[in-house]
Simulated assay, not measured.
Amino acid sequence: MPQTILYARVSTADQTLDHQKTLAEAAGFAIDDVIADQGVSGISTRLCDREGGKRLYDRLRAGDTLVVRWVDRLGRNYQDVTDTIREFMRRRVIIRTVINRMTFDGSTTDPVQQAVRDALIAFMAATAQAQAEATKEAQKAGIEAAKRDGMKYRGKKPSYSREQLEEVFRLISEGVGTSATSQQTGLTRQTVLRAKNDPAKAEAALDRWGL
């Protein structure tokens, strides 16, 4: 029986996977399952090389529908996105986007319709890459501007206090696991892991913010 599978990807801790599912359901999609990648770049990592992406390639069958918020969830690299969509269409998988309600499949045999469809896919993939590059350049420009203005570039404000960090170090030294440390301190597993892997960097972040 054909299934409707949502693929969700978030690249930072500030984004949530649940939000993408909520948007899809609000748009009228009946989602059977969600396959996701978290903390993975859509620029440098191809879909087929991501953990969730591999599952997606293994899972999708002819007649299934793949739902994404927009094509940039598949990736932000032009070649990767166009290759991915064409590969799924060859498998007779239907790709649908929540934003703009676009539908791509391999059902048409008319060469003109195929050309229009392929041009639209190429345009959307190129737009996804261009947006990613523009965002990266804007971030770099902002950092440089702050430095030129004599401001101390501090980065993102830590999500933990000095007391919480000290508690993390204490629990880790006692052999307490990452998940248990996360529960006891109220911090995310990712935050605990970052502090565990690079204690000096975690301390320096607090110092930069005067915390």
Rank of each mutant, 00 (worst) to 15 (best):
D72V: 03
L56H: 04
M1G: 13
D72R: 04
A30F: 10
E133M: 06
D149T: 11
G39M: 06
W209T: 04
A62R: 02
D118N: 14
D105I: 02
G53E: 06
T84E: 03
V93W: 04
Q129T: 08
G177R: 12
L120K: 13
A195Q: 07
D105A: 00
V116A: 08
D149H: 15
G42E: 05
Y7I: 08
R189P: 00
Y78L: 13
D58L: 04
L60V: 01
T22V: 15
R96T: 10
K147F: 09
T108W: 07
G53R: 08
E51S: 11
L171V: 02
A36S: 15
L206C: 07
K196N: 09
L165V: 06
V112H: 08
T12H: 03
E25L: 08
A204G: 02
I95V: 13
V81C: 05
R96D: 02
T178Q: 10
I99N: 14
A62L: 01
A180W: 05
A134P: 00
A13S: 13
P2W: 08
G177W: 10
R154K: 15
Q114K: 14
I35S: 04
M151Y: 15
T108G: 07
G175I: 05
K157I: 13
N77L: 01
D83V: 00
D83F: 02
Q15W: 07
V176S: 03
T127V: 14
R86D: 12
E174N: 07
A200L: 09
P158V: 05
A26K: 13
R170Y: 07
S11W: 02
A134Q: 13
I99Y: 12
G106D: 06
T12K: 01
A128T: 00
R55F: 00
L187T: 02
G63C: 03
T45F: 12
Q190L: 11
T45S: 11
Q79F: 13
G106K: 03
F104D: 00
D58A: 09
I31W: 09
L6W: 05
T4Y: 00
A62S: 11
L23V: 09
A122Y: 02
V168I: 10
R86W: 14
I31M: 06
I94Q: 11
K201Y: 10
W70A: 11
Q184W: 00
P111Y: 00
L23K: 13
L120Q: 14
A27D: 07
N77D: 15
S41M: 05
P199F: 08
A24T: 02
T4I: 13
Q164Y: 07
Q184K: 14
M102N: 12
T12G: 01
T185H: 03
T185E: 05
V112F: 12
L66T: 01
S161E: 07
L23F: 10
T97R: 04
G53M: 03
E144M: 14
